[in-house]
Simulated assay, not measured.
Amino acid sequence: MEEANPGTVRPGGRTARVRAAVLRAAGDALAEQGFAHLDLADIARRADVGKTTVYRRWGTVTSLVADLLVDMAEQSLPRTETGSLLGDLKANARLVQRTLADPRQGKLFKAVIAAATCDAGTADALHRFYAIRIAEWAPCVRQAIDRGEAPEGTDPHDVIRAVSAPLYYRLLTSADPLDEATADRAAEAAVAATRAGAYRR
């Protein structure tokens, strides 16, 4: 059996409290300062945890950010099942919109995405984060196929990506508001494209 990466196990008691405090501090520092200025000693100070503990458990900033992304993916709300593809995708889009529009979370995602463009470890962690979230929501597309709302052969992962792509684009490229109406339009566009067969394999 392979050994778990440092900081990725979910033990209980004091260890869990230390991990939660360090991840919270890392998220705060990332949102405030960006990836380039992250420092394990500063994060330890913010979390009121010994530096040695942080260095021993995570070792590098990249490992800590990877664990933060794992935690964020696991803490994200589960998918909503409304009984219709449009309802499910609107729920997904609104969840993404609320996360990205949140002052802390929006900055945190911008910082991680920026870091992923030049740091392979952060890019891998970001890819794992989205793989977990897409896998969580893909069943709603499979259910829509079973109900006849989407063509056979539709790729569920592509549909879920299509919902959030316009929201991330707006976050990263414009100063336009990231509101619920924008989320709903993203879901409606993804449903229309799905029904037209745009995401068939």
Results as ranks from 00 to 15, higher is better:
142 R>N: 09
198 A>H: 14
177 P>V: 06
153 G>L: 09
105 Q>C: 12
197 G>E: 11
83 G>C: 00
195 R>N: 12
3 E>Y: 12
83 G>S: 01
140 C>Y: 02
195 R>D: 09
52 T>C: 01
178 L>F: 02
182 T>N: 08
25 A>L: 07
63 S>M: 13
127 H>V: 07
154 T>W: 01
78 P>A: 03
165 A>D: 15
8 T>P: 01
34 G>F: 06
37 H>L: 15
92 N>F: 11
150 A>G: 09
109 F>C: 08
109 F>D: 04
19 R>K: 14
93 A>K: 06
57 R>C: 01
26 A>F: 00
105 Q>Y: 10
55 Y>K: 05
31 A>D: 11
147 R>Y: 12
174 S>L: 04
187 A>Y: 00
144 A>Q: 00
64 L>W: 07
117 T>W: 08
158 D>E: 15
92 N>R: 12
100 L>M: 10
149 E>D: 14
138 A>N: 04
1 M>K: 11
47 A>R: 01
140 C>V: 15
46 R>T: 04
101 A>G: 09
85 L>Q: 00
180 E>I: 07
12 G>N: 08
16 A>Q: 10
33 Q>M: 11
129 F>S: 02
129 F>L: 04
89 L>W: 03
37 H>W: 11
64 L>I: 12
8 T>E: 12
26 A>Y: 00
32 E>P: 06
11 P>I: 09
169 Y>N: 14
105 Q>F: 13
156 P>L: 03
14 R>M: 05
52 T>R: 06
142 R>G: 06
37 H>E: 15
49 V>G: 00
134 I>K: 01
148 G>C: 12
92 N>E: 12
72 M>Q: 14
129 F>K: 02
122 T>I: 12
2 E>M: 09
72 M>W: 10
39 D>R: 13
